[in-house]
Computed example of a mutant assay.
Amino acid sequence: MTDGFLETRIHFSNAQLNELRAEVSALVQDVQLEGLTIFAAGSFARLEASEHSDIDLFFTYHPTGKTLEQRRTNELKLFGRLIDLVGRLGFPPFSGDSRWLQTHDIDQILLHLGGPEDDAANYFTLRMLMLLESKCVFGDDAYESALRAVVRSYYRDFDGNEESFQPWFLINDVMRYWKTLLLNYESRRNEGRTPQERSEARAKNFKLRFSRSTTCFATIAALASFDSVPTMEDVYQLALLTPRERLQLVRERIPEVSEVIDGLIAEYNWFLSQTSLSVSDLHAKFESDEERRSMFARAESYGRRIYDLLVAIDEARGTAPKLLRYLVV
């Protein structure tokens, strides 16, 4: 795929997001939800969406929205308008029958960081999506405040340990998110085994091996690319980048890994070309045994390239803390 193809995807994503921002700003003017931010995740946040991509929106308050009057009534009013809006703008319907249209308080999410409710209430997933692949759609100030609060939560041990601190807490959570995605995929395979469901599961697996793995490991690679301990501001700025931009940042900081990253980006461009299809056409690709084996062989090769990148970073960094050592044990 050429740079022109990628520029088209970036332009399309930005155009759709800008239109969505303008429309959302207009429809919430009479909805009293101070401190609310709405952010997009998924392919639109990665700036690689196609005309077949759906829009994933998430809703948080910072500071807390607990004191708002008629909070739930206003939220339902907002959600109803958003459901109408995405249809009018030509997006596919919200996934899961709009089950994810719910709000969360960032303070509550951080209060339960690492605890049982972190997973049970989907706090962990929302926190990771905000950090790893998010673009603000509404409430810029609240978004910045919330994102900085999330970053700060991973630096609780920084003060007094400035010389020895490493962001292993954050890196471990990114790895935990990656493994959670793998578990979620296995769980979905239990839901049905019709030919259509098998094709859908294979398509999700294919996407997992490219887009999700890149989101996670491009972030880990970027965190490992700093010459010194990354500050909270460094991590905040990383969170504003797309996974592809994080890979480009690693290439700038560690020229020795340029060849590995070029190979990764070339293969990722191929992946994007495959996922430009409609849902039905993409699923159909996995019904052919020969084509399915070929596509998954490239996905397997892509995973090896990601591993090669982590090894190359360790080799280039010499005496710095070994990334692979902390990822494994």
Results as ranks from 00 to 15, higher is better:
Asp3Thr: 08
Arg46Leu: 11
Val328Ile: 10
Leu17Asp: 13
Thr215Asp: 03
Ile171Phe: 05
Lys179Glu: 15
Thr194Ala: 09
Lys179Phe: 14
Tyr154Val: 05
Leu85Ala: 09
Val328Asp: 03
Arg71Gln: 06
Ala22Arg: 14
Phe286Gly: 10
Ser258Phe: 03
Gln166Asn: 03
Tyr61His: 14
Asn74Glu: 02
Leu223Phe: 05
Thr67Ala: 03
Tyr123His: 10
Arg193Val: 12
Arg148Ala: 07
Ala224His: 01
Met130Tyr: 08
Arg148Phe: 09
Leu131Tyr: 04
Gln248Phe: 04
Glu300Met: 09
Ala45Gln: 12
Ala297His: 15
Glu290Ile: 12
Thr125Trp: 05
Gln102Cys: 11
Thr103Met: 02
Glu259Val: 07
Lys204Ile: 01
Ser25Asn: 15
Phe210Lys: 00
Gly65Ile: 02
Ser225Pro: 04
Gln237Ser: 14
Glu19Ala: 12
Asp173Asn: 09
Lys204Leu: 09
Glu290Cys: 04
Gly80Tyr: 00
Arg46Thr: 12
Val260Ile: 14
Val174Ala: 11
Leu78Phe: 05
Asn172Ile: 01
Glu162Thr: 08
Glu117Gln: 13
Thr180Ile: 08
Asp262Gln: 06
Thr319His: 09
Leu181Trp: 06
Asn184Trp: 03
Lys77Pro: 00
Leu33Phe: 03
Ala121Pro: 02
Gln196Ser: 11
Ile254Gly: 13
Tyr143Asp: 02
Arg304Leu: 12
Glu144Leu: 01
Glu197Leu: 10
Ala203Leu: 12
Leu85Pro: 01
Thr8Ile: 00
Arg244Tyr: 07
Ser145Gly: 08
Ile38Trp: 09
Val311Tyr: 04
Leu324Asp: 02
Leu277Asn: 07
His112Asn: 10
Leu27Asp: 00
Glu34His: 03
Phe94Tyr: 10
Glu191Ala: 10
Glu233Gln: 15
Gly263Ala: 01
Leu6His: 04
Met175His: 08
Ser187Ile: 09
Glu191Met: 10
Ala45Trp: 13
Ser258Lys: 15
Ile306Ala: 03
Ile83Ala: 14
Ile10Glu: 08
Trp178His: 06
Ser213Ile: 02
Ser228Asn: 11
Ala299Ser: 13
Leu327Arg: 02
Leu238Ile: 12
Trp100Tyr: 15
Phe169Ile: 09
Met175Gln: 13
Tyr185His: 15
Glu200Gln: 14
Leu170Trp: 01
Leu240Arg: 14
Glu259Trp: 00
Ala40Phe: 09
Asp30Leu: 00
Ala266Cys: 04
Thr231Ala: 14
Phe296Val: 15
Asp289Trp: 08
